[in-house]
Amino acid sequence: MSALLEQLARRQLVWQGNSQHTAYQAVSSGYAELDQQLAGGFPASGLIDIQTGPGIGELRLLLPYLQQQQSSGRLLVLISPPAQPCADMLCAAGIVLSQLVIVTPKTSKDALWAAEQCLQSGCCASVLLWQVPLKLAQARRLQLAAEQGAASVILLRRPMDGLSLPVNLSIKLQPHRQGVLLSVQKRKGGWPAAPFLVDMQNRWPGLCFTTEQHWQARRKAS
């Protein structure tokens, strides 16, 4: 029996309960309820898949994490951002602009190549990759490169059905008036979680409707 178990474990088909905490090193996300759900925060390295619509608060969710990743003096790379990044907002969130590199490749092939080079180099802490179609083999490649360079790569894409990618963490975001509604779809060493609200009212009061405003709006609508 134990020989069979060992064989299965070697092929990574069996997860043992005591290996949970070693799945990845977590970095606090800056949001207490999220940290609690993710058992510590976002992974410090590896592939993080975020399925989200544009402009609903996905970057605001990541900023405290990115700022901590950058604090070791390593680079933050933005690959094919949807529009011109704004220095004011990043600077206000504590991102060091001299450690920020923006790459705007022409094709998605070049984008993946750039991501892999950045991850492998070991001088990047995090790479953000926007809207690049990713195949299973490419995701695996990015995951390996990220582990090699001890970096994290965050893939921001529209919600879509498809094969599950080999990722450390996969989450889905939905818009909400007080923040974002987050559901954990897949987590290495953990279980998927039901959607819950990440409240941004403390951190970003200008970008949330307070509950009073909410009820006022309801009343108007009725």
């Binding site: 680079l75 990043l90 920020l100 590199v101 790459v103 490749p105 022409k106 070049d110 080079q117 001088c123």
Partner: peptide, 22 residues
């Protein structure tokens, strides 16, 4: 970091790799 930037510039072109200042 400088080597990485040179590598990216060599393949993607100089204007495709940039920084950001306030």
């Amino acid at each position: 970091p400088l080597q990485l930037v040179s590598l990216l510039q060599a393949r993607l072109g100089y204007h495709c790799v940039s920084g950001l200042t306030l």
